[in-house]
């Protein structure tokens, strides 16, 4: 464990807790894409299949449980909570996220480190995580501006993957044979997807005005 990875995990934890807190406190999920939340629940479900079979550390297992619990709770709130579900604008959140899952599954069947059930699903979860934010970013474009909690959520989510890239660089130089191209490329693509959002987030912060994404 290195400081970059710890910072990444804490930022990731903060992003899901910020979102869960927002939804639980104000009983609203306006501006949040259910599609992205469903994709994240699938990412964690396919990423942590080995939670019962392989034990790495208390920290690792605890974080996996928190991520699984929070992502499924957010989906539950948005789909089934009597008050929250009414604030979900389904006619704006129309990204066909199944179109994201199929290419990721096909790619995972083609490019992976080992052709085993767990490894292919784990690789699928990596590819899916890279693109899972797309429905949310599309929704933001549609709704034009975002409230600061959703902005913080995306900002933290992008930051977590940025820290992970620093972690991979650090591990590459400090651990012999630590080479995982698939993880690195997926993580880089994911961070690049956030890059333009970061740019507009920074502009709005600098000019101290509401975040307006270009059409």
């Amino acid at each position: 464990m290195n400081i970059f990875r710890l910072a990444g995990d804490m930022t990731h934890l903060a992003s899901v807790l910020v979102l869960l807190l927002k939804i639980h406190t104000i009983k609203s999920c306006a501006g949040v894409s259910l599609k992205t939340q469903e994709l994240y629940a699938i990412v964690f479900a396919t990423r942590y299949l080995d939670i019962l079979t392989s034990f790495v550390s208390i920290y690792n297992t605890l974080m996996k449980l928190i991520f699984l619990g929070s992502s499924f709770s957010i989906v539950w709130y948005m789909k089934y909570h009597k008050t929250v579900r009414r604030t979900y604008d389904r006619d704006q959140d129309t990204f066909r996220h199944w179109f994201l899952m199929l290419p990721c599954l096909l790619l995972a069947l083609l490019i992976h480190e080992k052709f085993t059930f767990f490894e292919v699903l784990w690789t699928f979860s990596l590819y899916l995580e890279a693109v899972a934010i797309l429905p949310q970013l599309v929704l933001l474009q549609r709704t034009r501006n975002i409230d600061n909690l959703t902005g913080q959520y995306i900002f933290l989510l992008g930051g977590y993957r940025g820290f992970y890239i620093l972690n991979w660089i650090y591990r590459y130089f400090t651990e012999p044979h630590y080479v995982h191209w698939i993880t690195w490329i997926a993580g880089l693509v994911q961070t690049l997807l956030y890059a333009d959002f970061f740019y507009y987030y920074f502009l709005s912060w600098k000019n101290n005005k509401k975040l307006q994404l270009p059409a």
Partner: peptide, 10 residues
């Protein structure tokens, strides 16, 4: 590089 060692990350 055993791919299992990469599973120490979340």
């Amino acid at each position: 590089t055993k791919s299992s060692d990469s599973k120490d990350e979340l």
